[in-house]
């Protein structure tokens, strides 16, 4: 078994998990719950094994670096983190419904990583500038942040669905009656956003420290850096409007979705639409 097979299996099992979680939601079959969780956890272990294999393979090629150094690897790690966070939330808040919203994000990320032709999947050696432990710290912190924002956005969509159906009382009301209460969803949105904010702050900081150790400049306003700062400002605005202006519920749910769009642009849009120091990420 090599890493690409393991990661391929992961993609399909995440698809199955997605289907299972949606089935729980649509067909009201809570008995599937245990299976869905078990399946997702298994897929996550397979993915972990895949990442470890890829790490080992890089050593066998005489390159030797953690599998966190290009766009492909970061998308895989992003999916891995989403599932890890989701499983923690499922365990902590004892609800499986969120899975129908969060797990698809991980599946889509893996599908994109596996099938897109934009991404180079080979294990490449690192140019000198990338050979730094700060790179690993930087990628890990950023992607834990991004993954929490993804989960916050998934919860935001869930909140809006719930809100819409309780307001209008239409057919989807039956579906969303099984969602956690709006107060609980709102609380988890806030918690995931706060968690993401700390990690994003850490991501920006580790990036700055790394740049300083490689080039002697901790901040150079290149497009990627600037977009991460814009995203950071955006979440700071959300936190302040919530904390000091009492915003909650629908407004925050919408902002959580927009925040994630900003994350996506920082992560993906900048590499393909704008140019800068971080252009290595597009390989």
């Amino acid at each position: 078994m090599d890493s690409s097979q393991l990661l391929g299996i992961t993609t399909f099992t995440y698809m199955l998990s997605t289907v299972l979680y949606i089935a729980i939601l649509v067909f009201k079959t809570p008995r599937l719950g245990g299976i869905a969780t078990l399946f997702t956890a298994l897929a996550w272990f397979v993915q972990t094994a895949g990442l470890v294999m890829r790490w080992i393979e890089s050593y066998q090629l005489g390159i030797g670096h953690a599998p966190l150094t290009n766009m492909y690897e970061s998308v895989v790690f992003f999916a891995w983190t989403i599932i890890l966070l989701y499983l923690l939330i499922e365990w902590k808040f004892k609800t499986k419904i969120i899975g129908a919203f969060a797990v698809p994000f991980a599946f889509l990320a893996m599908a994109y990583a596996s099938f897109s032709t934009d991404l180079d999947k080979t294990i490449n050696p690192l140019i000198p500038a990338l050979q730094s432990n700060w790179l690993i710290a930087h990628v890990v912190t950023c992607f834990v942040g991004y993954a929490s924002f993804a989960v916050a956005a998934a919860l935001g969509i869930m909140y809006l669905l719930k809100n819409k159906s309780t307001a209008s009382g239409n057919a989807s009301a039956a579906l969303s009656s099984r969602f956690p209460s709006p107060v609980v969803i709102d609380d988890i949105i806030h918690k995931t956003m706060v968690f993401g904010f700390i990690w994003l702050s850490g991501g920006i900081i580790t990036g700055a420290v790394w740049a300083n150790s490689a080039w002697g400049t901790y901040w150079s306003w290149d497009p990627k850096e600037t977009w991460s700062l814009i995203t950071w400002f955006f979440y700071a605005i959300i936190l302040h409007s919530r904390y000091t202006r009492g915003w909650s519920g629908k407004k925050i749910a919408v902002l959580a979705i927009f925040g994630f769009l900003s994350v996506l642009f920082t992560y993906y849009g900048v590499n393909f639409l704008l140019s800068g120091l971080h252009s290595y990420g597009s390989s």
């Binding site: 306003w221 497009p223 977009w227 700062l229």
Partner: peptide
């Protein structure tokens, strides 16, 4: 700050 920062990335 967030809004105007976009200008310099484009």
């Amino acid at each position: 700050l967030a809004g105007t920062s976009i200008v310099g990335t484009i």
